[in-house]
Design a protein around this nucleic acid. Structure first.
Lengths: 125, 125
DNA sequence: GGCCGATATATCCGACGGCATATAACGCTG
DNA sequence: CAGCGTTATATGCCGTCGGATATATCGGCC
């Protein structure tokens, strides 16, 4: 049988002042909003409260020079949320950074993964 | 006068299970322990409680197959903390990932920085 | 026009994280 | 051998973050 290969999971946050312009959570949320066309539906998919999802969207919009998500009130086809062109490009760029990072530093990740403990610390105090 | 150029600050965390094997805070702590030879002195430099610093060190040590920091009790030259070879190499690899990432994805960062708002959100609710 | 489902926002409250504090053991130094 | 500064660990407290809840408003649909 083969040796269990543990691996580290890179999590990248792009910070702008005190706020996080985009990170893993906001990226996934952006993706789900694009899929569902609704903040609340995206929040449900992530098992996240609508409040929190709305806050994340608000922060993202404030961090850039144009909104990443445009919203309209009214239910049943009337309202909802739409990811703008800028929103899609920001998401694509964020994914691109992660991908290029994994490729460019593959040797560093290999070294770190090769020296991981057999088991992650379950009870971090 | 030139246009104010805002920029995003990348923050990378390498997660192993629930714990963060290494991130910005742990990296700086590791560096300061190497400089000062003491957890408590490093903590003071970072305006961090000794408790928190010790917990971070403990987590780091548990995440890898050998300690990054070795400690010895006793004050005034007797005790202290020493960063191991593995610790120095882990730190170097972490820095290397950040550097390579910034280089490989320079165009993506340039795009994002070019579309930042004029001012970061000060009151994120 | 009434209903439904969505955005938008305020308030209350529980959980959790980190600080401050306290204590113990340890090991050079003088 | 007394003292000091360090590692190591437990406990109580408090600020903060986020969830739950409530409410208002809006806009298609039947």
């Amino acid at each position: 049988m083969s040796v269990i290969m543990n691996a580290v999971k890179p999590r990248l946050r792009l910070q702008f002042g005190q706020a996080v312009a985009i990170g893993p959570g906001k990226a996934e949320l952006l993706e789900l909003i694009a899929e569902t066309g609704s903040i609340s539906a995206a929040a449900k998919r992530m098992a996240m409260s609508y409040r929190r999802a709305w806050l994340l969207v608000d922060t993202m919009n404030q961090c850039f020079d144009a909104p990443l998500v445009e919203t309209a009130a009214g239910g049943k086809g009337g309202g909802g949320a739409r990811v703008t062109d800028l929103g899609r490009e920001v998401l694509a760029r964020y994914r691109s950074i992660l991908k290029k990072c994994a490729e460019a530093a593959a040797d560093d990740f290999a070294f770190l993964n090769g020296h991981l403990a057999s088991t992650p610390p379950e009870n971090p105090h």
